[in-house]
Amino acid sequence: MTQATLIDAIRMAMDEEMGRDPRVFLTGEDVGRRGGVFRASQGLFDKYGAERVVDSPLAELSIIAIGIGAALADLRPICEIQFADFIHPAFNQIVNEAAKFYYRSNGEWRVPLVIRSPYGGGISGGLYHSQSVEAFFAHVPGLKIVIPSTPHDAKGLLKSAVRDPNPVLFFEPKKGYRAIKGELSEDDYTVPIGPARIAREGRDLSVFAYGMMAHYTTQAAEKVARTDGIDAEVVDLRTLLPLDKTAILDSVKKTGKALIVYEDNRTMGYGAEVAAVLADEGFEYLDGPVRRLTGLDVPAVPFSHHMQEFFMPNPDTIAEAIRELAGY
């Protein structure tokens, strides 16, 4: 066990999987000599060579489509989209192709593909280096969507994603790449795709979050425990598709209240589905309104500092939302 950052964990997962299985390769923009613009693949080019760490042309659609073709041929591609904001040209390949191959071939053609992409705001990335895109894809059966918030989970979930026979979108909270630190084992372990994680046990209310917001929510929950004596349960969803409904319902059964935190635009965001699950299947457990704390309903995250900070939930605004709901 060592202390490591989120990006260390991602790099270690790729390194271990490439070492384990010669079919695993990485492609994307600047992933080779440069080691990725965030250094996720640093050292892998030297270790595995240009054959297996492949700098792609600057064309996101093709990164995914090449990955799909290679996956159909039973390789195990990891495709990096440099920023989630740039994934949109590949939407057709992900939604119409990767997600539907297994279904449209009645279970014959599998697409064991991993798409890794940093997402989210808070790094002064402006409109096109800050987006959260998970809701677009969470609507699509056939895809799996994973968003880790700790180094331990990032490594274990990414290794599961590489071994999964289905297309997995692996979104990485880039603000946390170096800001989030934690214990990281060098063992060959996996974390299963599917189950949510109770990041903090509590009795008074449940807060559901993922990615950077799960990290912030845990900080906020510790703070309100100290300052207000509120005992919030934090559920890190980790896997957005398929959604762990059982974990959501079990938590609210215990606490009676639910807050959902996500940094994407509010309307039609991922938290709306969590709220719908609770309204439908958890109605009798509820002792208060299902609340959301989210990014704003504007087209994107602005560059300039005050606007960016105002857009994003943070530990203070999350703490305030917890207090407000706890007092309901």
């Binding site: 489509a65 090449i66 073709g69 390949q93 192709e97």
Partner: peptide, 10 residues
């Protein structure tokens, strides 16, 4: 087309 290029890549 790009998928078939991916098959050829494999």
């Amino acid at each position: 087309v790009p998928q078939a290029a991916g098959l050829a890549f494999a």
